Amino acid sequence: MTRKVVKRRSATEQDKLISDALRDVGRPVSAYELIDELRDKASLAPQTVYRALDRLIADGRVHRLESINAFVACRHASHEGTAVFAICSDCGTVTEFDEPAAVERLSGWARKAKFAIERMTLELRGRCRECTARAPS
């Protein structure tokens, strides 16, 4: 019985593979959807994907959308603080933007309350312009 030789990828190669896949998909996806997307290119275990996503999040190249438990590629070169996401409940489109004033107000509240922020994710849920325009009046 012969065993198939599997080439191990470095963490950098895995990160690039996953980051590129997120950009190509262009919509929020779960780790398991990423595995399916990459099935033709690589055989990845869930823990490998989650470790890569953790690294990419730490590097600011990927964001986790808490409310839908999904991941998206960062669309900004840099952020003035925390990214904000508008998520369409109808079509699933995600728009990423900065809103420094809102982030500063929340951070100010936390300072006054002596609340130590570990992570901040701001998500707006609703309908995008296109879905709102298509909706019956």
Rank of each mutant, 00 (worst) to 15 (best):
T2H: 12
T2A: 13
T2M: 11
R3A: 11
K4P: 07
V5F: 03
K7S: 10
K7W: 05
R8V: 11
A11Y: 09
T12P: 00
T12K: 14
T12H: 10
T12L: 11
Q14D: 09
D15S: 10
K16R: 15
K16T: 12
L17Q: 03
I18D: 04
A21D: 02
A21V: 05
L22N: 05
L22A: 02
R23H: 00
V25T: 13
G26A: 04
R27M: 06
P28F: 02
Y32V: 13
Y32W: 09
Y32K: 13
E33N: 03
L34E: 01
D36W: 08
E37Y: 11
L38W: 06
R39S: 11
K41P: 01
A45R: 10
A45D: 07
P46C: 07
Q47H: 15
T48E: 15
V49L: 04
Y50K: 14
Y50Q: 13
R51K: 10
A52V: 09
A52W: 06
L53Y: 06
D54A: 13
D54E: 14
R55N: 13
I57F: 08
A58C: 05
A58F: 07
G60L: 06
R61F: 05
L65D: 02
S67P: 00
I68E: 07
A73H: 04
A77S: 15
G81V: 04
T82I: 06
A83D: 07
V84T: 13
F85P: 03
I87T: 05
I87C: 05
S89E: 15
C91R: 00
V94Y: 01
T95G: 01
T95D: 05
E96Q: 05
E96V: 02
F97N: 02
F97G: 05
D98G: 08
E99R: 09
E99S: 09
E99I: 07
A102Q: 12
L106K: 01
F115I: 09
A116I: 12
I117H: 04
E118V: 14
M120D: 02
T121S: 08
T121V: 15
L122E: 11
L122W: 12
L124A: 15
L124S: 14
G126W: 01
G126E: 00
G126L: 04
R127E: 08
E130C: 08
P136L: 14
S137V: 13
